[in-house]
Design a protein around this nucleic acid. Structure first.
Length: 867
DNA sequence: GTAGGGTTAG
């Protein structure tokens, strides 16, 4: 107390002794102007020439250096000051805080007090600002406590600083609390801090509400307020409000501010109004990198990668400033364009300009290479990164998944966890999608549990991926539970539900969900219709299918893609309307692709139409010469029609071309060990038991009315032989194994490397599940992804009802889809059998490798007598 | 006289 009194007297005395002359006052003013303009060296020259200096002169010089980040010089001047005050201390502390030097900032803060100077609102404001920038929440809380003790807690300046600090530390509730305490005395800065707090923490709606309240209270917004409000409009894609805000900006005369302009351009781009965005960009007097970045990204997101690239070229040609945000957008556009040559060129440019060290840029490089299918380059960039964040890992994990390397994706996720990088919603969604592709139910559940434990907020992407994962693993009820638990649903959630039910043999429910979706006001997209057509074709609802097919164009303006045509052809083919299917192919207004021809070929397969099958095969031989599928299918059609010579000729041709027909596998995972089965093969150590069990099962099935469908058997052998070859099919061997060794009450899940049937719908649905994962990608990107290479199917036994009879969906499909349930071993078994089993050889590289490593362990486990 | 609040990302 006495020290402070002494200081006050001293200051007072010095002001009397050195009463400022008029000229000193003018010089101080001039010095301050130079300092404000950032002309620090000019200011220093003037400062040195001044014969007389008062406290203002010294403070201004310290502030000039401190604001410009020249902290060593600021401190030197500060040390020379004859008499220090709270203001000179605050000027110095402000500089250190502004530039994020937390150790020095706090040191001076304590030193200032030990020398008897009380911190002011400015000192606390500076310290709080630093806590906000550096995310020092607990330090910020200490300062909050200090403010309460020193009665600064009702000061607007300090309270605004506290709001900002809490909001930037993601503590919106605390920020909100302080904001509400300030019933009066809130100024425009306080309102702005709160609006930006909401906006930066993803609560766009509250940000906009807060802005409206601010205006209602008659507080004027300024150039600091509008960017946050506009980015909230962008987040909500609320262009109507955005346009009104634009009006306020023009009225207030803030449209020349670069922050406001950039946010305007970004808002228009995100609301898909590229025209207005472009207009705003053209109106800008100064070329500003952020605005151009927003525009480039806008073009990419709205599906105009060419425009994005040309804008970047313009930037480059004009010698404009380019930053670490520019490259990611441009790299993104090249990823969309599948332009590997330009991608490499841009990579070179990145290296040349030294931007490779920016995480943002390297992450985008990984993402681009992965999307272009060049995993080697993606991994190279990834490995060269010194510091990897969750986005780097996500880019590579998603990249592996895009290219069908699901196990690699999962392994990388493990590695990331080992490196103690905390996952976020996006990588969780990506990993769940890989689990879903491999039908890894348990791992999927673990990821789900881990996600709940992590305390991360729910996200649409995660929930949508969870639904797909559960549905793909046959857990329809869990998929539905996730759907019910969701607070909001978008078109992807509804589509996931529709597809889940369609995939799991509940087509009619699928169609009901579609009605519910429409009633809830959500518009379907092209994938929704794929789900619907899939549901119709599997439920035999030909008329409904036709209705939806017509409706998608008429009512929703969605032009049918080859995938939709393929579904329709599948539907007609299954219903025996082969002529109609052929007619539809001929009437297509777009070029039929391989998917369409395969669907037609599959239809021929059921109805033995060899002429049409030849036509479809010829088209496929041209379109996909390296694909063994059409050869195998046509050969099978020949066999079924008794044209053995044609079939043999085709097989020889296949062999000559080196197209391998490899066997289908089925496998069961039990206690972490994979047991693999191949048709009629006896390599498993428990082979005898398995075959004997299978004979019992076959006898039971026959009793229940099962008649083997031997028409499609491959070989020219007698009836008994054909039946035999169907009996020891790999799925059946796996079932027998499951019945013998999987503990009672535990669901038996059987996996296959082959497609369930030759229908192309599943491949389309693979794309659909990818779309579900990445709902932020545009549909154009989606089409560009390479098709998935494999399919895993499953058969589940956990139905607590006995259906001891053949379950046919009726009509001609009954020939193609045989679903039969039997009771075996006190368990009830629902056995859905594909319409034929022995062919469709889509080989899977990765799960095979995985199985091989685990397969060896299988014998030990069984021989160890665990059962 | 020292001064608090802002845009672009997988």
């Amino acid at each position: 107390m006495s020290v402070q009194l002494h200081r006050t007297i001293q200051t007072f005395a010095s002001s009397i002794i050195r009463k400022p002359k008029c000229s000193l006052l003018d010089k101080n003013k001039k010095l301050n102007e130079l300092s404000k303009l950032g002309q620090t060296d000019e200011a220093r020259k003037m400062f040195d020439k001044m014969p007389e200096k008062d406290e203002f002169t010294w403070t201004t010089m310290v502030a000039a250096y401190a604001n410009g980040g020249r902290l060593v010089e600021a401190r030197q001047v500060f040390e020379e000051i004859p008499i220090k005050s709270s203001i000179t201390w605050s000027s110095l502390i402000c500089g250190y805080c502004k530039h994020g030097f937390e150790i020095e900032g706090f040191e001076f803060f304590w030193q200032m007090q030990s020398e008897g100077h009380r911190p002011s609102q400015f000192t606390l404001g500076s310290i709080l600002r630093m806590c906000a920038i550096k995310g020092l929440l607990s330090r910020g809380e200490q300062i909050h406590g200090y403010a309460i003790k020193t009665c600064f807690d009702m000061n607007v300046f300090v309270m605004t600083g506290l709001i900002d600090m809490y909001a930037k530390s993601k503590r919106v509730l605390e920020a909100e609390c302080i904001f509400q305490i300030m019933s009066h005395g809130k100024n425009h800065v306080t309102w702005t801090a709160m609006i930006n707090g909401y906006s930066q923490n993803g609560d766009a709606l509250r940000a906009i509400q807060c802005f409206s309240s601010m205006r209602a209270e008659g507080i004027e917004a300024n150039q600091y307020t509008f960017p946050g409000v506009l980015s909230s409009c962008a987040a909500l894609t609320d262009i109507r409000f955005g346009v009104q805000v634009h009006g306020c900006i023009v009225n207030g005369g803030f449209e020349a501010n670069v922050f406001v302009q950039s946010s305007l351009i970004d808002m228009y781009c995100k609301c898909e109004d590229l025209h207005s965005a472009k207009k705003a960009l053209e109106l800008m007097e100064v070329n500003h990198a952020v605005s151009w970045n927003s525009m480039i990204l806008g073009y990419v997101r709205n599906g105009f990668p060419d425009e994005a690239l040309s804008l970047f070229k313009k930037m480059y040609a004009c010698d404009m400033e380019v930053d670490e945000f520019t490259y990611p957008s441009v790299l993104n556009s090249l990823a969309c364009m599948q332009d590997p040559k330009n991608g490499k060129c841009l990579h070179c440019l990145v290296v040349k300009t030294g931007y490779e060290s920016y995480k943002l840029v390297s992450n985008a490089l990984v993402d681009m290479y992965a999307k272009q299918g060049d995993l080697a380059c993606a991994i190279n960039v990834f490995n060269s990164m010194v510091e990897k964040d969750v986005i780097s890992w996500t880019s590579l994990v998603t990249g592996c998944a895009h290219n069908g390397f699901y196990e690699e994706a999962l392994k990388l996720f493990y590695e990331m966890r080992t490196a103690e990088i905390k996952p976020d919603q996006i990588i969780i969604a990506s990993v769940l999608s890989s689990c879903s592709e491999l039908a890894l139910h348990e791992l999927g559940q673990q990821v789900h549990a881990d996600f709940i434990k992590s305390g991360l907020e729910a996200s649409l992407s995660v929930d949508n991926s969870l639904m797909t994962m559960y549905a793909n693993c046959g857990c329809l009820e869990d998929a539905k539970k996730v759907f019910i638990s969701m607070q909001m649903h978008n078109v992807i959630s509804w589509t996931a539900l529709i597809v889940a039910y369609a995939q799991n043999g509940k087509g009619k429910e699928s169609l009901r969900f579609f009605d519910e979706m429409i009633a809830s006001g959500i518009e379907p997209d092209f994938i929704t219709f794929i789900g619907l057509l899939f549901a119709c074709s599997h439920t035999g609802l030909v008329d409904d299918g036709k209705k939806y097919f017509a409706s998608m164009k008429k009512d929703y303006g969605i032009r049918p893609s080859p995938d939709h045509y393929a579904c329709m052809i599948d539907l007609l083919g299954r219903a025996g309307k082969i002529q109609e299917a052929e007619k539809l192919v001929n009437e297509m207004d777009i070029e039929p692709d391989a998917t369409v021809w395969k669907a037609l070929l599959a239809a021929c397969r059921v109805h033995g139409n060899t002429d049409l099958a030849e036509k479809a095969s010829m088209a496929l031989f041209q379109l996909e010469p390296q694909d063994a599928v059409p050869y195998v299918m046509l050969s099978n059609i020949y066999s079924a029609a008794g044209k053995w010579e044609n079939a043999a000729k085709l097989r020889r041709k296949m062999n000559l071309k080196g197209l391998n027909k490899e066997p289908g596998y089925s496998w069961i995972e039990m206690n972490g060990v994979v047991h693999t089965f191949i048709s009629e093969e006896r390599s498993h150590s428990k082979s005898d038991e398995i075959y004997s069990k299978l004979e019992d099962v076959i006898a039971l099935i026959k009793e229940a009315g099962y008649v083997p469908d031997t028409i499609f058997s491959l070989h020219d052998i007698n009836e008994e032989g054909r039946e035999q070859s169907l009996s020891y099919h790999s799925e059946k061997l796996a079932i027998a194994f499951g019945l013998l060794y999987v503990p009672k009450g535990v669901p038996i899940r059987i996996f296959k490397n082959l497609r369930r049937n030759p229908r192309q719908g599943l491949m389309i649905l693979k794309k659909a599940s990818f779309y579900m994962l990445c709902d932020e990608f545009s549909s154009q990107e989606l089409v560009a992804f390479p098709p998935c290479k494999h399919m895993v199917t499953w058969i589940i036994f956990h139905k607590p009802v006995l259906i001891a009879c053949l379950r046919f969906s009726g009509g001609p499909q009954s020939q193609s889809l045989l679903a039969l349930s039997i009771e075996v071993n006190e368990r009830f078994l629902l056995w859905e059998q594909a319409w034929y089993h022995n062919y469709t050889h889509f080989l899977v590289p990765s799960p095979m490798e995985w199985m091989k490593t685990k397969h060896k362990k299988a014998d030990n486990v069984l021989d160890g007598g665990s059962n």
